[in-house]
Design a protein around this nucleic acid. Structure first.
Lengths: 336, 336
DNA sequence: CTTCTGGTTGGTATCGTTAACAGCTTGGCT
DNA sequence: AGCCAAGCTGTTAACGATACCAACCAGAAG
């Protein structure tokens, strides 16, 4: 049957010493005679003892728990997966473990998961905040939980964030489409209430405005959260009497969906680079960002805060790069 | 400054009751007079109190910690990301949070992360075991930590596993290539010491043997763990005096790498389906499996164990499907 | 009036670990 | 011998929550 987990007391009895001595040995405290330490170590091995970090954390309430929490929309999203991988790498380097949760863009779910994390005394949180106010994080923050946002800013919360210039990147990409002779440019994005997608749409609108093109609401489809949804949105646009000649997809997942519906000859730009972009026909022009660099930077920032950095909250903006591979350079009807 | 986290004692003082009463209110115990409960709730809100689950877990040592651990090779791998997402979903449904770690196929790292997890009293572990013996998990298992493997079996450990028939799937796919007239078929895989890739190679070898084709070691490149490594492996094979006319890639990441080097006319089959497979030229034939179903099944199995299922360890085999899209049906030199 | 019941509340000990301090050796020095 | 320092080990009391039991109160029953 399930043997119960041995405690320091058990090890102490086995080795004929006090629990305190076991503690010292287990934690590598030098002030133990080598012979005693050897006896304790033998007992540890014999019983299969492992220190109980739950009890340890309780006793050492003012020390760190060496646990951080990561909250993303959905780990299955390749961008978020890269973020999670990079964040966990840094956590490991810093001797911490990482709790992970998916909000699925649902603020209530995000709240619940964060509550479960803070109840376990995480030292800090890395978030891709869902839409809506994150004021609810204030108490946790006041009580010492460090918070860093990645990919998105958190409305109503004074925290560090590591993001890219979504507005500028999209404005540039749409500007390039305009320069290639497009005036009817479609945009498929996720919910604009999510900071990142709000910024991207702003960039789209700004580029059109700068070119003196009136924005057509029929060419903007937002709230798509999956490939099939994006595909339907694109199909809808293409069925218009005056369909777009170019299209911008707001992220990798939406790009995949859009590409399934994309007719040849339609110009296309996607946000986020992906493995096979160069292999498609035509090769896909993308706005590339570096999720690993974003997350690594965010994680380092978090650990700096955890270890006492109290400087004012800052927002780190990482670069994006427009990679022109062909699909975005297909000339439009107004090409020179 | 960082206000310190309020405790039940603080709430009790604020509400003019004992800590015990606060505990009852916080945990929804009914035996509290409504007026008292209201006073306590007001104090909880006023102080921003949240129950400390670390202390709670310690006191309730024989209850569950409502925490599970997931250990994968690398969350950034799309297959593993899907697994993580699905596992976390189930955990959440079951009221648990999930710790995540990446082994990067390094057994030592896997051990360390698992130790950090068990020290935090996880109720169970979902693993994609790296190469090597997992005997080291025995003590944790004996002490009650439930373990389920997903995607891979764990050599030397008596645990549940949810996998696909990698051997049969690859044998079928390679058999199909042979049937299309190929005799020089290349294989790019990860380290065969990892159970899954061992099985896949066995399938490859068995299919060739069944067709009476002598295996050529120059056509087998193993140990590739990234796109670029797979690309180099493929380039190496193609530079042979007698290059392959067909190629099988052992997983999604390797397929992406291989595809960058793949000349037109070479038949190709990849293990794992991916979003743009149908969009490539030619469309890519794949062996599809369902990582979400695998992980969901594994997680349900784990929670069943956690909640007392003591039946003998079982291995669940989920289906794969050969999706013929074109690249795998390109005829070879021996086509009828 | 006493006893009892049921509903509510509080006290105490404990989970496993460790900080702080106390106590015991041993050996060296005067 | 006497004393002290250094090195090692043990004791006690927490950390914050809760299981268990005791105590209290009102009102009902006898």
């Amino acid at each position: 049957m399930a043997a119960t987990r041995p405690t320091m007391k058990d090890v102490a009895a086995e080795a004929g010493v006090s629990a305190m001595t076991v503690s010292r040995v287990v934690n590598g405290d030098s002030a133990v005679a080598p012979r005693t330490a050897a006896r304790v170590e033998a007992a540890v091995r014999k019983l299969g003892y492992q220190r109980d970090d739950v009890a340890r954390q309780l006793r050492r309430t003012h020390e760190l728990s060496q646990t951080i929490g990561l909250l993303v929309d959905d780990v299955a999203d390749p961008f978020m997966a890269a973020v999670a991988s990079a964040a966990e790498d840094v956590a490991r380097q810093r001797g911490s473990v990482m709790l992970i949760g998916s909000s699925r863009a649902d603020l209530r779910r995000e709240r619940e998961v964060i509550a479960a994390f803070t109840a376990r005394r995480v030292d800090g949180l890395i978030l891709t905040p869902a839409a809506g106010s994150h004021r609810f994080l204030r108490p946790a923050q006041v009580q010492g939980t460090k918070i860093v946002c990645v990919d998105r800013a958190a409305p109503g919360l004074d925290v560090d964030a590591v993001v890219v210039d979504n507005f500028g990147a999209v404005r540039e990409a749409v500007g390039a489409l305009v320069a290639h002779g497009h005036r009817r440019i479609g945009y498929v994005g996720d919910r604009p209430e999510i900071w990142t997608f709000g910024e991207r749409r702003r960039g789209y609108v700004a580029a059109l405005a700068a070119a003196g093109i009136a924005a057509d609401p029929a060419l903007v489809r937002e709230g798509a959260r999956s490939g099939p949804e994006a595909a339907r949105a694109v199909a809808g646009m293409l069925a218009l009497p005056d369909p777009p000649t170019a299209l911008l997809a707001g992220n990798e997942i939406l790009a995949f969906g859009a590409l399934t519906e994309l007719p040849p000859g339609l110009a296309f730009v996607g946000f986020d680079d992906f493995a096979l972009a160069a292999r498609l026909t035509p090769p896909v022009t993308v706005i590339a960002q570096d999720p690993v660099a974003l997350a690594t930077s965010a994680a380092h920032l978090l650990f700096a805060r955890i270890h006492g950095d109290t400087s004012p909250a800052r927002t780190v903006v990482m670069p994006t790069r427009l990679i022109q591979r062909g699909s975005g350079e297909i000339p439009g009807p107004f090409a020179a």
